[in-house]
Design a protein around this nucleic acid. Structure first.
Lengths: 249, 249
DNA sequence: AAGCCATTGTCAATGCCTTTGACTCTCTCT
DNA sequence: AGAGAGAGTCAAAGGCATTGACAATGGCTT
């Protein structure tokens, strides 16, 4: 990539000063997201962001106190996107399942952004609303106050940790990701039958496992456990009825 | 902190050259871990590491191709520490529970190191062995090959994601951690009863939830679900028997 | 309409980071 | 003893986050 845009390749004409008010927090956040989605973590820095906005390298500091401040705003945007128009379902298990899936979908759509901002807490309206819905589901499940609080953290943190860790992996260099996957494939197949008999037994199936299926498997496991532990399990997901059909692998 | 050690504060006597062979990969990894444990992520960089070793800022590059290479070695060290002397128990549920707890304990003991290296894969002997044990547990549980492979990934990735995300939070600036916790405490208590009725209902219990209890709660949920879904559940953890007593909150 | 002045965009600079290439010393092998 | 490779050192390039000083500008007061 040329260091100087073609339009002023042969001269030192400085970029014209940006009009006052050209930059807003909203514009900066959305450009950050675009940059992160297109170029990954390496394509994102405050200098690069400033240049991408057609502004000075340090212009962003007029709107965000620090890079961390900007990251929190990005986190807020993501959680808002994930929880947009979410309405709790009549069935508390559906509600929890839906929220976990939505969070993961959003994080996977913006892995670099998510990898920077997951695990941060913003106290934004979207976040508070999501918390309220999860706790509501736990109360619906019949947990008493202290237990409901505990189980909210358990399931909420689980959803966040899972989606965040997938995003973190996807935000690695494509090169490194490929290496990791290829190395595992090879390690599995080359394993010694006597030394690692269990791996050997499933060596051909291991590389075929798909990320989406893994997520659905752990989600189903967690929900099955919750169904078992809840004082008031929801009727519509009674183990022998619709549940296996809906989440069957 | 003074820029120049007292012993040569008044002169420009250069540090004597290190003897050949003073540095090894083992020494460097263990010093890295010490630095990360004591000073956190901010206290760790290749220049700082070199200085801490009494060597040149760039000396580490003679033993590791890049910082990423060093991070992988640190990851290997951690997984080895977590899985040291681990023997599968007679009960597959005990085995899985034990592994998840061990990984978390190790990661929480080295949060900064874990936050850099979690989610990376090293194919070291310790890692391969852990994989073999988990798959063995799944076969023990009666899952067929393809399902065993899937459930290994589900439970293995879950353990890694959870421990990693706790480490990531603990590796933040103490300042930021405190902010995050305090903000939540305040946000919960100040919540509007009409707007967020469920939060309001458990507002006093929420700030009291402890991290260890959250982990045990999600672990119990996952294990309960697994017990339910396994073709051959282990007898010793039949829901009505020892299980509730052992993992009761 | 004139002028104030806080806000916002720009510039220059600091100090840190990762990584590289050239160098120099030193240990080991012949 | 001499050679050569490996290990430690030095200098430097190019990036990043952040800061302080400076300058334009657009709304507000009068």
């Amino acid at each position: 990539m040329a260091a100087v845009p073609a339009s002023r390749a042969h001269a030192d004409v400085p970029r014209p000063r940006l009009r006052r008010g050209s930059l807003t927090r909203e514009i900066i956040v959305s450009e950050s997201l675009r940059l992160l989605d297109e170029n990954g973590l390496d394509g994102f820095s405050l200098p690069k962001l400033g240049r991408a906005l057609g502004a000075d390298q340090t212009a962003v500091y007029r709107h965000f106190a620090s890079k961390d401040d900007l990251v929190l705003a990005i986190a807020d945007q993501l959680i808002g996107e994930a929880m947009a128009e979410l309405e709790p379902s009549a069935c508390w298990m559906d509600t929890l399942t839906e929220m976990a899936r939505r969070l993961r979908t959003t994080y996977l759509a913006h892995p670099a952004a998510a990898s920077m901002s997951a695990y941060r807490t913003t106290q934004g309206p979207a976040e508070i609303r999501a918390v309220d819905i999860i706790i509501g589901a736990m109360l619906e499940a019949g947990f008493e106050a202290a237990e409901a609080a505990l189980m909210y953290r358990a399931v909420g943190d689980f959803s966040l940790a899972w989606a965040g860790s997938e995003a973190l992996f996807l935000a690695l260099d494509k090169r490194l990701q490929q290496n990791d996957r290829a190395a595992w494939r090879q390690a599995y197949l080359a394993v010694d039958r006597m030394e690692h008999p269990s791996i050997w037994q499933v060596r051909t199936e291991l590389p075929e496992v798909k990320d989406d299926d893994i997520f659905e498997a752990i989600l189903k496991t967690v929900m099955t456990g919750l169904h078992q532990l809840a004082p008031r399990p929801c009727a519509c997901h009674a183990p022998a009825q619709c549940w296996p059909a809906e989440l069957a692998d």
